[in-house]
């Protein structure tokens, strides 16, 4: 077991950040912590990386206790905080050399591990880290977190504020790292990224809602979901909210995801209702539940 979390709770003054959290992450697993801002993801990361002490519960990372053996953990994990935390006035190469040195290694020694990532930023190695673009910064930060060949990698919202192309590349890199035997715990507020993890935990208000593989989580979705579109989206959402049998209404890209309270729901009834509201070009079609739908349903 790479990460073992047992009944962790943590409060700050009068705010409860984590309530009785327990889960395990297997060796070599890419585990996602999915939840909105303020769900407690960062607090959990900080407890696991020995930066905070939990009020209750115990946790082990790479078989080390996060409180008693904090020094061992600091030798064997890589941590990339949510905020860009490298030295902005140092160049790309200087940053990487610095982190290699304080972990008692060199860039050459573990170059094969970071090669895929580093080649992309190598052309800019003499540029100051502060002048890099968002995606480049993340790649550099990941290189720095990897340079000492950690057993477990903690990535706190690594793709927040990064363009879609770089985000995709970033996740491809994580997949490759996973193949090299590194356990990765990653948090993200983006539901589409959740599907790329081996297993995910949905977290909100400091509580775990569900833990499973992305496929299973979606399977558990209890309702039938319909994609609904009309020429006037705003009017459509207003009308659906007025509809007395609606269970949930969420805008989802160019469609609205709709579920009904009744088990014997007939889309024709809804179509009639919407037509009476004066909406045009109405489309109602069956669709598959996504992780986002599951999350919204669980968070209700």
């Amino acid at each position: 077991m790479s990460i073992l979390i047992k009944h962790i709770s943590k409060s700050f003054k009068d705010v409860t950040a984590l309530k009785d959290i327990s889960f395990n992450v297997n060796e070599g697993e890419l585990f996602g912590l999915i939840g909105p801002d303020g769900a407690g993801k960062t607090t959990l990361f900080r407890i696991l990386t020995t930066l905070l002490i939990a009020d209750e519960g115990t946790a082990f990372v790479a078989n080390y206790d996060v409180v008693k053996n904090y020094k061992d953990i600091r030798n064997h994990v890589g941590y990339m905080p949510g905020r860009f935390s490298l030295y902005q006035d140092l160049t790309v190469e200087e940053n990487l050399t610095f982190f290699a040195t304080i972990f008692g290694t060199t860039i050459e020694e573990n170059y094969d591990l970071i090669k895929d990532i580093y080649v992309q930023i190598e052309p800019f190695k003499n540029r100051r880290a502060g002048d890099l673009s968002g995606g480049m910064k993340q790649k550099l930060a990941l290189s720095c977190a990897l340079i000492h060949k950690p057993k477990v990698l903690f990535l706190d919202e690594p793709t927040t504020g990064v363009d879609p192309v770089s985000r995709k590349e970033f996740w491809e890199m994580l997949k490759r790292l996973q193949q090299k035997g590194i356990t990765i715990l990653v948090s993200t507020p983006y539901m589409d990224e959740a599907a790329l993890c081996d297993r995910i935990a949905l977290i909100q208000d400091g509580q775990i809602l569900q833990i499973d593989t992305p496929k299973e989580i979606v399977k558990h979705y209890p309702k039938t979901i319909y994609d609904i579109a009309a020429s006037n989206m705003y009017e459509l959402i207003l009308s659906l909210n007025e509809y007395q049998y609606n269970h949930s209404v969420y805008p989802f890209g160019e469609f609205v995801h709709y579920t009904d309270k009744r088990d014997d729901f007939n889309p024709e009834d809804l179509l009639k209702f919407l037509k009476n509201k004066g909406l045009k070009n109405i489309i109602i079609q069956l669709t598959k539940a996504t992780i986002e739908d599951t999350f919204m349903e669980l968070a209700r």
Binding site: L51, R74, P81, R83, S85, L86, I102
Partner: peptide, 13 residues
């Protein structure tokens, strides 16, 4: 302030 202390703490230094 810049958050680099967080990384320094999670290192063997």
């Amino acid at each position: 302030e810049l958050g680099t202390m967080e990384i320094l703490l999670v290192s063997p230094i």
